[in-house]
Each structure stands twice: as structure tokens, then as C-alpha cells.
Design a protein around this nucleic acid. Structure first.
Length: 799
RNA sequence: GCCGAAGUGGCGGAACGGUAGACGCACGCGACUCAAAAUCGCGCGGCCGAGAGGCCGUGUGGGUUCGACUCCCACCUUCGGCACCA
């Protein structure tokens, strides 16, 4: 071999790592600190794309770095295997989702090996395997026992194309997250997880995790906690009290009407008029998109009734209007047109009184100011008045402080086939009965027709559906909905810790040895969905005394999305970049380095393979330097020269970039600089220095290009680089004897002079004053001030 | 509309308030070669200048500072999240 040939190098090292089980770790404790490094598990559909390569390249660099800095690293892999893609494929082709999914898994596995990712394969599983989903069902039953999984009829989001309900989190701008179809509202009985019970703890515990602030903010906004008051408006004619939620009890005196959502159960009780029925029906049949259009003019119908404003006894008219949402607050609002834009618009359309009660400028104004037209509260600043008015209502039993959330409970049932069955049976006598633990898993039966028909395709598997009641033995039928795939991925990281355990989902002690995940790595698109669900699961399981952590992921790194032509890669758009061709052409090491070099991995960007040649050249240069290297020891002999200093500089730079800030791009750039220096100095420097620099370059590039790193390091030292500790920079070699002292005049660079690195401020100033350029530029001007930055520069301020 | 991030050469991108453009791509020149590729070396923000050198330059306008890509204020543009949430 006389040129760098990844086709020879890469398979050889992959074989070594497979044969020797290099990346496997046991669950036995040892003296090293643990590090659980995890990338989000892939959703196996087709073959991996370049975004996967980026994700696992980042994670692998971290895993290697942690291993070589003395950690016992857990770095496992699995597959989020249930889901709609495989099922839709089955509808088209008749191929069982299991077959297409497992074919895809085989391809992902093959490529992960081809990329040289350092995975402990003994812990691998797919979430569609009964040995895994048995425990997903077990967790469901624990949540059920605790009242955290429940069935309820509610207005839910329905995707007419996928023929299934969706969680709120899976509706993006009124459309189905998966297929983009506008969703419809339906009144259905469904399974929910009570994530709202954890809203406050999901917020509070954000202080305990090191996550990107934008992700925390997104979750915070999603949870949408707002403090306010619950206020009672009584309808005397009906003799019914209606509660409303408001964040602005200070504006109560300005409430001039009252509005109910079309879904509010009491609308027809208020008025049975035909126009009311017509309006409600129309609103209910509108898509979320149509109804939510912000430019739409306000519509509504008066209900011919009044309710009493509790602060002043005023009778105000009641309307039904679709701008009020049933799912937030109580589904009814007090309307304050002077201080709420929506109420203002509505009042304008229906010519309702607009009464300012806060002196805050032009109406409608939502800001603060002193109260007016508010009786005894006049003059009080609005923020203060909130409490005062709420207290005064409280004394009369007509209001109290309360907190509301935007977050809704997690709707987890899906009317689809390819998912984890919900382990519940319905018995005519006993009602809803959980499947006993020893009868798990409830296995997914094979069926012929995958086409959804508004109910789960499982309902057609009659032999499977008909069963006996675990409680009384009588006739019963199984739940035919399956679980949202986000349930599967909300606990997979726990299973990796104890993947082979057939007796339990995990052994608590083993779990305690690995959890929490020290470094989690994945796409920003999961900022809310997966990352919030998993946090909820861990908290719920901790409350059941089943594990010992409160947060699953101690540190999170979100990589930016790789796009193509400005769009997210997808098979339907036909813009997927497949890594396998590029690996074929350049080798995995080049591609891995390239994707980590084009920019900080947290940044997204449009894919272009321009520049990949440069990284191939760079790795070739390392290889060739080693190939042509002189014989001898790798320990630098004699006085360390520029090359040895450069090597230590690179060690320091890569260590800081990788350890502190995931700056893989500047870390690789530092190794490139070192290699450039090797080429400049290799004729003139001491041979041992050259050898040391080459071995150092191999050692530093190893986390990014593990095959080449191993190859060159072995060639130079006879050792296996992954068994060697991470190099340490010698601080004495990071400083030089002389520095280029910058001379500035009024903050502008005018000269550079050589000065001793340890020169005192006075000496520095004296040296700088001798600058000929300074003298020429000063030209009679007077220096009025001198600023000295030790070891760096001297700035003369002159007029 | 609200919240957040970002605007730097032809391109991807560097730069604890202290030498703007590291490193790579593309491009140009040279060496090697019969030649080409590969490789090795050099150059490469703009303007003026034969050169030495000078002036301008980090989205726009202001401010703080001896000194601002970096901090503050306003604006413009792009991207991401949320969006009739009371």
C-alpha cells in the first residue's frame, strides 16, 4: 500500500473491534467513573441519511473522548421500530411491517458498523420486539395503577388521512405532523397519560439539567404556565355558576360581555334557538386551520341570557363564539374589550360597550396603569389590583387565585396496527381489566388487511380480540388501539442499562449504576415531543419508587439539521443524501470528519459535498507522513522545538474544544494545522519530534476518524490508540519565550515587534516606544495615555 | 403578533472586549512530469500604489470604551418555536 486506502484500513479495524468486543461494557462496577453517552435512537425507515451520520459521529467522538479520559462508557444502540411509515408501506405493498422494518434495521446496523461507530452491540434491541414491548406494557400498567393512564371522552385531533387520533404535540400548525393533512376535531373516548400532573415539576427541574436554553424555553412555552384567578359569573335565570379563568382580574370592572366556546356543554341550555345550533355545528365541522385563522373576522351568536359580573353586580350578555377554546381554561371567558384585542374586535363587530378600566393609553391596551372606573379600586396600579380584587372576591366566595397550563394530557392511543398493544381487556361484568403481569406481553397478532377504517385494524383480528376476562374468566374483548410510538421511546434508555433482563424491565441497582444519561445527543426537532415525554416518564417512575433519578438526561446537545436545497430531507421530496455512496468513494473517516468540520455541529446547514476532497487530502497527509516517517522513538529527544510545541498546542486546543463546547470543527482544524506544521518541518526537525507529532496527530484525530487514527498510531508506536489515555498538554510548552508585541495608535494596529514573553509592563511600553513606525506616525502629536495589555499589546492614545 | 437564534471574503466558516478573515473549498502561480493527474510549495477581502506602504472593511444607524465582529439602544433581513391560551 503506497497511498491512503480507506478500503483496506477501515474493514481491518472494524474486524478487530468486533472480534475483540472492544466497545462492550459490563454492568459490574469498577473504579472508573461512568459515562452514559447516548444518541437518540433511529427510526428505521429505508436507509440512514446524512443526518444520522452526523448525529452518531458527534456521539462517537464524545464516547471515545470520555473513554480515553478515564471513563467507563456505555454507548448502546437500538431502533424505534414501531410507526406509521412501515404500516403505510404495508398498506401499499402487503409486506408485513415487521419485514420491512427489520430489513431497514439490518441496513442501519450494517452502516453503523461501516461507519465504525463504537457501539456495545450486546445491548441492541428494537422497540417492536416482544422482549422489549412486554416492558412497555408493564410500564403502562404501572401508570394505569397509579391513575396516570386513564380513558376519557374528549374533543381530540383526528387525522383523516392516517385515520388516527394525534397528540397535541403531533399537530403542527393545525396539520398532522407525519403527513401534513389538516386535522379535524372529533369527540372520542381515548387513552391519556396525565402529564399535566407533572407540569410544575417539569418546569422546576429545568434548573437541574444542562440543556440548551432554547430547548428549555420551548418546553416552558409549551407547558405555558400562567397565574391568574378563577372567577364565578352566575346566571340567575338558570341558577348556574360559571367559572372563568383570567390572568387579568384587575380588569374585571371592564367586563361587558361573556363568551362560551361552541363545544361548551351548556351552550344549548342557554339557548336552543336554530341559529345557535347552526353556528355550533359549523364551528365543530371546521378544521383547526380554518378556525384558527387569525385574520378571520370575529363571529358569534348572542344566547339571549345574562350572567352577573361578581365585582359590580352588573348583568352582562352571553355569546357563543369560536374564538373561545374549550380546551383552555374552563371553555368560557369574561370579555374585557378595552384591554383585550380579541374581545375588542368582537365588541366592534357586535357593537358592545367598551369600558376602559385601566389608564394605559389608546384602546385596546393590554399594558399596566392605574385603575379607573373600578369603584373602590380606582387609582391602584394594575399589578397590585390583581391581588386586591381577587382577595375581595375570595371573601365573598366568588373567586380565588389559580394557575392554568397550556399543556394538555398526552393522548397516547392510536387506531393503527403497527404499535405496542395496550394491555387492557374489557369484560361485560368487570369492565376495564388490566392484563395481569404474568400474561405479558400481549403480542401483536398478524393480520391481512392493514388499511385503517376509522378503527384499529386490530379489531379485525377476531381470534385475538376475543379473550377471557382475567378477573372473572367470562367473555371479554381486548383493547384494539395501539400506543403512540413516543411511548416506546420514552424509556428505551433505561432498558439499555439492563437489556438482557428477562425477569424485569430493569434491575434497580444496575440502573443506578448508569443513569442518568450523562450526554444525550439528538435533533432539535425533538425539543418538545420526545424530550418532554421522557422527562415525564422518569418522574412518574421515580414517584412509583422504581428508579432513583428525577431527570433522564443530565446534559443535552442538539445538533442542527442537515437540509438539502433548503428543505428537510425526506424520501417523498427525493432529496435524501445517502452516506453509503460517499463512504464507498472516500471512506467513513473522511465523511465523518467532513460532516464535523463544515461548521459547529449545533448549527444546521444545507448539504454540499464541495470540500470533502479537502478532508480526504488531510487524512491522506497524516497517512503519508506516517508512511514516510523516519525510524526511531516517538518520545521527543533533546530540546523541544516548534513542532513539539505545535503538537502540545494542538492537544490543548482539541481537548478544550471537545470537552467544553462540542466544537468539532475547530478541533479538527487544529489537527490540520499540526499536520501542516509537520510537512513544513519534517525535513529540518529532529526525527523523534516528527514521529511524536505524527503520533499525536493520529491520537487527536482518532475520535473523529477512528480507523485512520488507529492505523497510524499503531504504525508509529505499535500501540492501540483507544487503550492509551488522552494526551495531556505540557503547560510549559504552551508558552513561548518571545511574543509579537502589537503596537497600536489610538486603537489601530501600526506595528508588531518582538518582545520577551515575560516582559514587565514598563519594559513592554519601552520596547513599543522604540517602534520606528510609531515615531513616524506620531509626527509631533502628544501621547496622552498608554494602555498596556501584558504579553499582547501597547496602545498609545495621542492627540 | 409574541419568544428565541443568527447576519463576517466567491463559498463553508474562525476570532476570552485587544493583530478580523484561523482551517478548509474554489481560484491563480510555481516545482515535479514528454504531458496530464496526483503530490509538494507559494499567493488569495476591497481600493490606491512600481514598491515601501496607505485607506476602507464583520447587515444599517447611533452609543459605551484607550480599543467593539464581540457590550448597550433602535432598525432591516433570514431562520426556528409558539400562535384567538383569555
Amino acid at each position: 500500500m503506497d497511498r491512503y486506502d480507506p478500503k483496506q484500513i477501515e474493514p481491518r479495524w472494524q474486524q478487530v473491534w468486533a472480534d475483540e468486543h472492544t466497545w462492550e461494557v459490563t454492568n459490574e462496577p469498577d473504579e472508573r467513573p461512568k459515562a452514559y453517552v447516548l444518541e437518540m435512537l433511529p427510526y428505521p425507515s429505508g436507509e440512514p441519511h446524512i443526518g444520522h451520520l452526523k448525529n452518531y459521529s458527534v456521539g462517537d467522538a464524545v464516547a471515545h473522548f470520555r473513554r480515553r479520559t478515564g471513563h467507563r462508557v456505555l454507548h448502546p444502540m437500538g431502533y424505534d421500530a414501531f410507526g406509521l411509515n412501515a404500516e403505510n408501506h404495508a398498506i401499499k405493498t402487503g409486506q408485513h411491517p415487521r419485514e420491512s422494518t427489520e430489513a431497514s434495521i439490518a441496513e442501519f446496523r450494517r452502516q453503523f458498523r461501516e461507519w465504525g461507530i463504537s457501539i456495545d452491540w450486546t445491548r441492541e434491541f428494537g422497540t417492536h420486539e416482544p422482549r422489549y414491548y412486554r416492558w412497555t406494557q408493564w410500564i403502562f400498567l404501572r401508570l394505569y395503577e397509579r391513575g396516570l393512564a386513564y380513558r376519557k371522552e374528549a374533543a381530540v385531533k383526528w387525522c383523516p388521512k392516517d385515520q388516527t387520533v394525534l397528540a397535541n404535540e403531533q399537530v403542527i400548525e393545525g396539520r398532522c405532523e407525519r403527513c401534513g393533512t389538516p386535522v379535524e376535531a372529533r369527540q372520542l373516548e381515548q387513552w391519556f397519560f396525565k402529564i399535566t400532573e407533572y407540569a410544575d415539576r417539569l418546569l422546576e427541574d429545568m434548573g437541574e439539567i444542562e440543556w440548551p436554553p432554547n430547548v428549555l424555553t420551548m418546553q416552558e412555552n409549551w407547558i405555558g404556565r400562567s397565574e391568574g384567578a378563577e372567577v364565578t359569573f352566575r346566571c340567575e335565570e338558570l341558577g348556574v355558576d360559571y367559572e372563568v379563568f383570567t390572568t387579568r382580574p384587575d380588569t374585571l370592572f371592564g367586563a361587558t360581555f361573556f363568551v362560551m366556546a361552541p363545544e361548551h356543554p351548556d351552550v344549548f341550555r342557554m339557548s336552543d334557538a336554530p341559529e345557535v345550533h347552526e353556528y355550533v355545528n359549523k364551528a365543530l365541522n371546521e378544521s383547526a386551520e380554518e378556525r384558527g385563522d387569525e385574520h378571520k373576522q370575529k363571529t358569534g351568536v348572542p344566547l339571549g341570557r345574562t350572567v352577573t359580573n361578581p365585582v359590580n353586580g352588573e348583568e352582562i350578555p352571553v355569546f357563543v363564539a369560536d374564538y373561545v377554546l374549550m380546551e383552555y381554561g374552563t371553555g368560557a371567558i369574561m370579555a374585557v374589550p378595552a384591554h383585550d384585542e380579541r374581545d375588542y374586535d368582537f365588541a366592534k363587530v357586535f357593537d358592545l360597550p367598551i369600558r376602559p378600566v385601566i389608564d394605559c393609553g389608546e384602546l385596546p391596551c393590554t399594558g399596566d396603569g392605574p385603575l379607573i372606573n373600578s369603584g373602590e379600586f380606582d387609582g391602584i396600579p394594575a399589578p397590585e389590583a390583581k391581588g386586591a380584587i381577587t382577595d375581595s372576591l375570595g371573601e365573598r366566595g366568588l373567586g380565588k387565585p389559580t394557575v392554568n397550563y397550556r399543556l394538555r394530557d398526552w393522548l397516547l392511543s392510536r387506531q393503527r396496527y403497527w404499535g405496542c398493544p395496550i394491555p387492557i381487556v374489557y369484560c361485560e361484568k368487570c369492565g376495564m381489566v388490566p392484563v395481569p403481569e404474568d400474561q405479558l406481553p400481549v403480542e401483536l397478532p398478524d393480520i391481512d388487511d392493514y388499511l385503517p377504517k376509522g378503527r384499529s385494524p386490530l379489531a379485525a383480528a377476531e381470534d385475538w380480540v376475543h379473550t377471557s376476562c382475567p378477573s372473572c374468566g367470562g367473555e371479554a374483548h381486548r383493547e384494539t388501539d395501539t400506543m403512540d410510538t413516543f411511548v416506546d421511546s420514552s424509556w428505551y434508555f433505561l432498558r439499555y442499562c439492563d437489556a438482557g433482563n428477562d425477569l424485569a424491565a430493569w434491575d434497580r441497582e444496575v440502573l443506578a449504576r448508569w443513569m442518568p444519561v450523562d450526554q444525550y445527543i439528538g435533533g432539535i426537532e425533538h425539543a418538545i415531543l420526545h424530550l418532554m415525554y421522557a422527562r415525564f416518564f422518569i418522574k412518574a417512575l421515580a414517584d412509583m419508587d422504581l428508579l432513583d433519578v428525577q431527570e433522564p438526561f443530565a446534559r443535552l446537545f442538539t445538533q442542527g439539521m442537515v437540509t438539502r436545497g433548503g428543505a428537510k430531507m425526506s424520501k417523498t421530496k427525493g432529496n435524501v443524501v445517502s452516506p453509503s455512496e460517499l463512504v464507498e468513494r472516500y471512506g467513513a473517516d473522511t465523511l465523518r470528519c467532513y460532516i464535523l468540520y463544515v461548521g459547529h455541529p449545533a448549527e444546521g446547514g444545507d448539504w454540499s459535498d464541495e470540500g470533502i476532497d479537502g478532508l480526504f487530502r488531510f487524512l491522506s497527509r497524516i497517512w503519508r507522513a506516517a508512511h514516510d516517517a523516519p525510524e526511531g522513538p516517538v518520545e521527543p529527544q533533546g530540546e523541544p522545538g516548534a513542532l513539539v510545541r505545535k503538537a502540545h498546542w494542538a492537544i490543548d486546543k482539541v481537548t478544550r474544544d471537545l470537552g467544553d463546547r462540542f466544537a468539532t470543527h475547530t478541533a479538527i482544524a487544529a489537527v490540520i494545522e499540526l499536520v501542516n506544521e509537520i510537512y513544513r518541518e519534517r525535513e529540518s526537525a529532529d526525527p523523534s519530534h516528527v514521529r511524536f507529532a505524527i503520533a499525536t496527530a493520529a491520537s487527536l484525530i482518532f475520535p473523529f476518524a477512528p480507523h485512520l487514527g488507529s492505523e497510524v498510531y499503531e504504525q508509529m508506536t505499535g500501540l492501540r490508540v483507544w487503550e492509551e489515555p488522552w494526551p495531556e498538554a505540557d503547560p510549559s510548552l504552551l508558552v513561548t519565550e518571545t511574543v509579537a508585541l502589537v503596537v497600536q495608535l489610538n486603537g489601530k494596529l501600526i506595528d508588531r515587534l518582538e518582545a520577551p514573553a515575560d516582559a514587565s509592563e514598563e519594559e513592554q511600553e519601552r520596547i513599543a516606544r522604540e517602534s520606528e513606525k510609531l515615531a513616524a506616525r506620531l509626527d509631533g502629536k502628544e501621547v496622552v495615555k498608554t494602555v498596556v495589555v501584558p504579553g499582547k499589546l501597547v496602545n498609545f492614545v495621542a492627540r
